[in-house]
Write a protein that binds this DNA or RNA. Structure first.
Length: 509
RNA sequence: GGCGCCGUAGCCAAGUGGUAAGGCAGAGGUCUGCAAAACCUCCAUUCGUCGGUUCGAUUCCGACCGGCGCCUCCA
């Protein structure tokens, strides 16, 4: 089995063959940090996370770069409105992005280059393009790339098959820059007073100004892989589908014109959109949901990951409350199983587990090797859950093989949710309660508030105290009181579950 | 107008030229004081519509209907 990936360049699925195995250079277009990134953005980053994890699980040595665009029109406009510099405007959103990324358990890239910290390489790139004739200075002082000098322009987006609608945006006529060709794109924008006002202008041999968006990625990618490996071509470049044209098309043009290489990246991969009721999630539609919104609502990261991975990355994903609820339930079940499986771990695998583990590994690998077919990988995982639960019910033991097969899927997908668990032994007069996580041991006779305390730590103690009372009620067969306490705990988000050995588990997601 | 994508059970969602994975929800059962969790069973003769190719199509081709994206410095 070999890994095959869909390449936007060829519109086909191809066996993945990095330029210098086992090394893989992976560049991902990251967020523009002008605001909080929404889960539509994070859908793409979760796709990248899966790619990254699967490449590493497959034995590749990945060097992952994700840029942070910290200078662009939106940032300058917003900074101007607020009367702050772009650096000040952006700072909190960079922090927020990192927090959200960590919350979603996305593996951090090795490098997060920021555009404003790579101005020098950008200037060198523009100089190179001016020197070899691919770029020219407009009368407004900006520098443009001439697509007439780059015959391969349009390969990625199959531009030769398109016919740009004149004035589709209604903005071409209002374009104040003077380009030689309407499709030429700006590499370096001449500084304007608004740019200066927010500290978004740099000196350059060809005039003071700021980098164009497309330029950033090329300069940063080439700089970083050049510095580290002396390479000029990326193995994989990722982004959202909306970046295919013109962003990635322009990156290819300027990069290849600069390096003389036929490719900027060997494989281009693009994630489809996440939609809300059929429409793409976007600030201007007012249908934004951010990871922090979901976090506030108590949605577990594993559930969000599961939701995303249950749809193929090249397929649009529709976010609904129903889909989210389904993912939460599924994620919870996976976590429940994981705990059960690990607790039953034995030195040797039972025959049933051996067979189930083989099947899981084979199905899981085949699915992800097939252009990251995560939905199929998830299906294989659930099939193992069902089989594993049955085997456990029959008393069979999972050994190293089963645990490793399971562990591998968990490391790649990372979609399970394990609620915090606290256990109390009750009803058997075996001495003090077995308490995991907290040391509270309130006497049964003490007064106990019906409402939980405010402090998080005290809450578990409170729940455990009630659980012990319920245990006492149970042992004197006062089931009415026992049920009342269970309902009380449930209304505050705690679940009580009795086990066969007479103890009770109290859990909170 | 150009380029492209999608339409599979109540919901989400894989998939193959030979008669449909998985998840969630739902129904019944086992277990339990009752629950919960777990397990078992059931839950699309059918894959937008109409044609065509084929021994056979949900899967290939065409048309149509419906939804969506890009062509705007949007992931």
């Amino acid at each position: 089995m070999t890994l095959t990936l869909h390449n936007t360049l060829t519109r086909r699925q191809e066996p993945f063959a990095p330029l210098a195995p086992p090394r893989v250079t992976l560049y991902s277009c990251g967020p523009t940090v002008w605001n909080y990134a929404h889960i539509g953005n994070f859908r793409t980053f979760l796709f990248v996370d899966l790619l990254r994890r699967w490449l590493e699980a497959s034995g590749f040595d990945v060097f992952h770069i994700m840029n942070l665009t910290d200078v662009d029109d939106r940032i300058i406009k917003e900074a101007g409105k607020q009367g702050v510099t772009i650096a000040d405007l952006v700072a909190p959103f960079v922090v927020a992005f990192n927090e959200d990324r960590d919350y979603l358990r996305i593996t951090p890239a090795h490098e997060y280059p920021r555009a404003t910290e790579f101005v020098a390489p950008m200037i060198r790139l523009v100089e190179g393009l001016l020197a070899n004739g691919a770029a020219y200075r407009g009368e407004d002082g900006s520098v443009y790339f001439s697509i007439a000098k780059f015959p391969a322009y349009g390969r990625l987006s199959q531009l030769d098959k398109r016919e740009l609608k004149a004035g589709a945006s209604g903005r071409i006529s209002s374009d104040e820059y003077d380009k030689e060709n309407a499709q030429d794109f700006v590499l370096w924008k001449a500084a304007k007073p608004e740019d200066e006002a927010v500290a978004a202008a740099w000196d350059a041999p060809f005039g003071r100004g700021r980098p164009g968006w497309h330029l950033e990625c090329s300069a940063m990618a080439l700089e970083l892989i050049g510095r580290r490996y002396g390479a000029k071509v990326l193995d994989i470049h990722t982004g959202g589908v909306d970046l295919i044209f013109p962003h990635h098309e322009d990156e290819i043009a300027q990069s290849c014109a600069f390096t003389g290489e036929p490719d900027f990246a060997k494989v281009w991969m693009h994630a489809e959109f996440l939609n809300v009721r059929g429409t793409k999630m976007s600030k201007r539609f007012g249908n934004i949901t951010t990871p922090r919104d979901l976090r506030t609502d108590g949605v577990e990261p594993g559930a969000i990951r599961l939701l995303v991975y249950q749809t193929h990355y090249r397929q649009r994903l529709d976010l609904t409350d129903h889909a989210l609820a389904a993912a939460r339930e599924g994620s919870r079940r996976l976590g429940e199983f994981a705990r059960r499986l690990e607790a039953a771990g034995a030195p040797a695998d039972g025959a049933g587990f051996l067979a189930a583990a083989e099947r899981l590994s084979a199905d899981f690998t085949a699915a992800l090797d097939d252009d990251l077919n995560a939905p199929r990988a998830v299906a294989a995982v659930f099939e193992f859950v069902t089989a594993g639960n049955r085997l456990l019910d029959q008393g069979e033991k999972p050994g190293p093989r089963a645990l490793e097969s399971w562990g591998r899927t968990d490391r790649v997908l990372d979609v399970a949710t394990q609620g915090a668990i606290y256990a109390v032994s009750v009803g058997q007069a075996r001495g003090p309660a077995t308490v995991l996580g907290v040391g509270a041991d309130a006497a049964i006779e003490d007064e106990l508030a019906e409402a939980p305390p405010i402090e998080a730590d005290a809450q578990s103690a409170w729940a455990l105290a009630w659980a012990r009372r319920r245990g006492a009620a149970k042992s004197r067969r006062d089931f009415k009181d026992a049920d009342r306490i269970r309902d009380l705990l449930k209304s505050h988000g705690w679940e009580v579950r009795d086990t066969k050995d007479g103890s009770s588990h109290v859990t909170r997601a």
